[in-house]
Amino acid sequence: MVGRSLREIIWARLRRDRVAMICLVILVVYYLIGILGPVVAGILNDSPYTLHPDLISEMGGKPIAAYGGISAAHPLGVEWGTGRDILAQLLFGLRISLVISTVATLMTVVLGVVIGIVAGYSRGVTDNFLGRLMDLILAFPFLLIVMSLSGVLTQRLTQLGVPEGNASRILYLILVMSFFGWPYLARIVRGQVLSLREREFVEASVAMGAGRRRILFSEILPNLWAPILVYATLTLPNYIGLEAALSFLGVGVLPPDVTFGSMLANSVTYVNVVPTYLFIPGTALVILVVSFNLLGDSLRDALDPKGVH
């Protein structure tokens, strides 16, 4: 029997999981579109910033063709009032949605892991303080706080040199999501560290005179990447949904830029007349979120040492 590294074993398990592979392919496609969105839109010879006043009625701006202006040139229709192409909006919107959710997830993971490891390893006063801090953050009615703060903090960000407009709005979303998100991961990490710190390899490292930072990040951290990876895979889709919910409540990216969330939020006004505005970005979002969730579940199964080999 050939020895295999943990990574090889897990990859082999994932390879056999048909659902996981399909989801992985879908996600790769989504990310490629996110990165290449402008190129794809260029091939389609359209952009979400191009207005098509000829495709909407002069009075009220209703798209002339049926189902929100669906035609050969605009297969998903055009926007009410501006005639902007929905497909192009979707391609560009995906990019901002992915940037927000991916960066916010990375920040959540860094914060959650560092604070969780420190809390679990230090115990005593530090642990107690960090524990209460997490309780405090988790007790806040997230949506209301994020709505109340959006004005003042977005302004503060522009004062700090972030370009005005959507750049600071996007940064604000990333910051609040990671600020309110890290305690969940920190709790998981802390729990794991509590048992890891009693293990022999940590004791050996202490006996050999390793410093605290070395023990935390070179000895303990490598043992944590399984739960961290699973958590990150399940957090990212949550953030995509959260961005949509916040857009609906009026916190988010402003036109002419779009995200999945802002497209959904804008569709609310016209949903009774043109339901496709609601269905198209919603379906694109649900496919993305489902793929992430299923991949996370598969990853959890593959990383479970009790699982069948």
């Binding site: 919910a245 609906f248 959904l264 949903v271 609601l278 919603g282 649900v286 489902v290």
Partner: peptide, 15 residues
């Protein structure tokens, strides 16, 4: 369940 869990609440409500 997977689909239900993935849908944004407001989107489901609106639909």
């Amino acid at each position: 369940e997977t689909i239900g869990y993935a849908m944004p609440t407001f989107w489901l409500g609106l639909i």
